[in-house]
Design a protein around this nucleic acid. Structure first.
Lengths: 238, 238
DNA sequence: CCGTTTCTTAACGGCCCTCTAACGCCCGGG
DNA sequence: CCCGGGCGTTAGAGGGCCGTTAAGAAACGG
């Protein structure tokens, strides 16, 4: 049974979230402030965090950054639709997914399930990616195509794929992708990123024109389909 | 039971690491500074070191170099992900592996196990390499060509081949090759390496112009094809 | 001390990788 | 209906990396 830490300052909304999650079979821990959330996260080691931006004390962004320093537990962000840029900032700080308010319980639970599904892939160490018939071994830097022929990826292509594979099935913000694959100097220029995504799709996707594994999240970033990681023979995604 | 020295300046993260490692059955010694780490390493003789870069006093890189001066215990480096050059520097200083923050406990433990497993088996590298019709016996320093005639390799050629053969099928970084085949002084000069790769290919490859066994990974290093090791047709081995 | 082998260094040419610019497409807003 | 943002796609320029060759320096052995 998974444990979820809910960080939300409004008591009534917190109650709704708790009821919803408990009814779905999760254990729930609550925190009303960022400071309290840090303490609870460290002591309870939750499997997932649900964080509302716009907390009274300090920024939710800082909370995400702090937790990301020592935990890989997925972080889902709750954000009002009016704060689009904040959503991107949160993802850039290390959040894994977002749910915009107002949201339905079905959508929330679907995203929670999707995020938790990543957990078992942690043990597999994400070194082996399966794009249909094309397989990439990130550790050995080897790739083989449908007919067993070797597929060649360039160093930069491996770097981009590496960052995406770190959070399979979850969103990686463009700035984060740029920072980790290119360096802190070029987080503002996404042109090169688009070119490399294209060439990765050409080499790995069965039908590059209709991406099935390397997916675009418009305005935010990219993500890998969750079933590229070995061991997750899963159902359809949200 | 293995003993691990954890070098980490943040007390809370240190606590997380200790809990994780103790739960997995390791004995743990801790150090908060590089100076302290040197003392503990010398007195406890740990089987493995877990070093966080970015320590308050002195550089983590210097610590690695210092320990490498008198110990062969595997060193795992822990670091934030933003600095790509730091990774190269650490590995070049003698670190064995690199774990980026944030990390999952499963991933950390898997890498610890892998490092400990690799350590004693350092002497198990294959001594017989099969390049198609040309066979090299690394232990006896003898090689025979397609017609059974002897093939002569120079001492330095054997040294390069030795390093590559230690990790068959895996990429060996240029700097690592230079460090292990030439010495730490010449890790910056890859010109000689290219010359020796060329002469090795001339002597061992069936078609030197189209390398099939000694492969180039542009921007990274070289590697041996995994089927040069005896056991392609039969897997029996000592 | 000389000849041979081995290693180092230099120079050049070519290929691959990366970056940049330009254009087209889709979509949502004015 | 036009316009602008964001993404996909293509092509080309530039630079860096590697392969190759050859000649000089160093080590080695008589």
């Amino acid at each position: 049974m998974h444990q979820i830490l809910v960080v939300e300052d409004q008591p009534d909304l917190r109650a709704v979230l708790r009821t919803t999650l408990v009814a779905a079979g999760y254990r729930v821990v609550e925190a009303g402030t960022a400071a309290r959330a840090l303490v609870e996260a460290r002591s309870h080691k939750p499997d997932l965090l649900l964080v509302d931006l716009g907390l009274p004390d300090g920024d939710g962004i800082d909370l995400i950054r702090a937790i990301r320093g020592w935990s890989v537990a997925p972080i889902l962000v709750l954000s009002a639709r009016t704060r689009e840029t904040e959503k991107v900032l949160a993802l850039d700080a290390g959040a894994d997914d977002y749910v915009t308010k107002p949201f339905g319980t079905d959508e929330l639970l679907a995203r929670v399930r999707a995020a938790l599904r990543r957990a078992p892939s942690d043990g597999h160490h994400r070194s082996r990616l399966v794009f249909g018939a094309t397989v990439v071994d990130l550790e050995r830097r080897q790739a083989t195509g449908p007919a067993g022929e070797p597929v060649h990826l360039t160093p930069q292509e491996y770097r981009v794929l590496d960052v995406l594979a770190r959070r399979p099935g979850l969103i990686v913000a463009q700035r984060q992708l740029l920072r980790e694959a290119w360096g802190p100097d070029r987080v503002d220029d996404a042109r090169g990123l688009r070119v490399f995504v294209k060439s990765l799709r050409d080499k790995l996707e069965p039908a590059p024109a209709i991406p099935r594994f390397i997916l675009t999240e418009i305005g935010v970033g990219y993500r890998l389909a969750s079933d590229v990681v070995e061991g997750t023979t899963d159902t359809t995604d949200s």
